[in-house]
Structures are given as C-alpha cells and as structure tokens.
Amino acid sequence: MNVTIYHNPACGTSRNTLAMIRNAGIEPAIIDYLATPPSRAELIKMIADAGLTVRDAIRQKDTPYAELGLDNPELSDNQLLDAMLAHPILINRPFVVTPLGTRLSRPSELVLEILPETHKGAFTKEDGEKVLDAEGKRIV
C-alpha cells in the first residue's frame, strides 16, 4: 500500500502517526514538509481530500500565525495558501495520504481510518495512551 506522510519529526503527534503506520506493516514515503513543502496544487488537493477548509489546515500554535495577521477572518483561501507555502510551519501536521483517503491526523488515531486493519499488535502512544490492544483492535 502506498502511504505518504507529511511529517515533522519534532512533533509528537506526527511521530505517533508514523509509528501507527509502521505498526500496520507499512513503510510510508516520509516527506519532511518543512524542508520539502508540497506544491500549491498538492496542498489544495490534500486539504480538499481530507474534507477540510484551508483555515482548518493552518497550524496556529508555535507559528507566526498571529504576527502575520492570519487571524483576520476576511483573508481569502488564496492568501492563506500563500502564507502556508511561504511559511511551511503553518501547514498543520501530519497529513497522511493513502489509497483509502487523506487525513490530517490530529489526533494521531485518525490515521487508522485510512489504513488497512493489518496492525501487528498493541500500540501505545509516546504519552502512554493505549490505542490498540494486543490483537491490534482499537481501544475505545
């Protein structure tokens, strides 16, 4: 299965998402989107395929969001996209693209919606939260 993760290794959510993909027996294509941002067309497609608005896909925390005035509700999608491409840290993460769909995996468990149910067993996130039991079934 072809899986791509737009990853930030400094982000715990992104690391947990990557680990869940690997727990499903998949080695994804890993794109460090801060070093290699998606093209405008790729970003627009990921946002649309994930069922998000452009504003939904912007990261506010630990970014220049406020100082760039992006909290102005009158900004157009094109203006927001311009800012995201100029400052990739504004692209929320991690986006994961699979043949089963595209998700902004926040929380990281959302990636399970677009992965086959081939998990190799239990999975616990970095913070100790149990996500999958020993049989690879989701813990609710």
Rank of each mutant, 00 (worst) to 15 (best):
G12Y: 10
H119S: 11
I47Y: 03
I91V: 12
L90F: 02
N72P: 07
D127R: 05
R15Q: 02
E27S: 11
D71S: 14
A10H: 13
K61L: 03
P107F: 03
P9H: 02
E135Y: 04
D82F: 03
A35H: 07
K45W: 02
A35L: 07
V54G: 05
M46I: 11
R103F: 14
I5H: 01
N2M: 14
D82C: 03
P9G: 00
N78W: 06
I31C: 00
N92E: 11
K45H: 04
L70K: 06
T98V: 13
L110Q: 09
T13L: 01
L110V: 15
R15T: 12
H7N: 02
T63R: 06
I58Y: 01
D77W: 13
R106S: 09
A122G: 10
H119L: 08
A57K: 05
P28V: 15
F123P: 06
D49F: 05
P28D: 08
R106G: 10
D71V: 11
K125D: 07
R40A: 09
F123S: 06
R138Y: 14
I89G: 04
R55G: 14
R93Y: 02
L110C: 12
A122M: 09
R106A: 11
P73E: 07
L70D: 07
D56V: 08
N8A: 04
